[in-house]
Amino acid sequence: MAEQTSLQERPSAHRRRPAPRPSRGPNDIYVNTKTDFRAQLSRCRRLLESGSQKELRVHGLGLAIGRAINLALQLQLAMPETLLSASTSTVELTDDLEAEGGEDAEAGTRNRNNSAIHIRVYRPHEE
């Protein structure tokens, strides 16, 4: 879709800023659509199995939501003792608009909203 708009509406060319990643711990997994799925899965499994992390937080934004869910379910399949708890949120994204009409105009920004999912994959506490 982005390509189409950029072709048709040349003047309103925009540049996306990277999506915010509020927490960057070693157990925060931001799922994207480019990385190989198996690689992502094996990375998560390694983290969980090593025992260094008690829980993983899998984040997916927009198109990657499906992948994030898939990843969490696959993890649970591989390790049946883990539990999942999902929450959704709305993430505010910013685009830089390129200035129209010469140099006097201020380049503006535009806000969009996109939905995101955050899945907690954890082992229940042993009682």
Partner: peptide
């Protein structure tokens, strides 16, 4: 030149 992008005059 303005062709190459915003110049010294660019508003921001």
């Amino acid at each position: 030149s303005i062709d190459t992008g915003p110049t010294f005059k660019a508003a921001p």
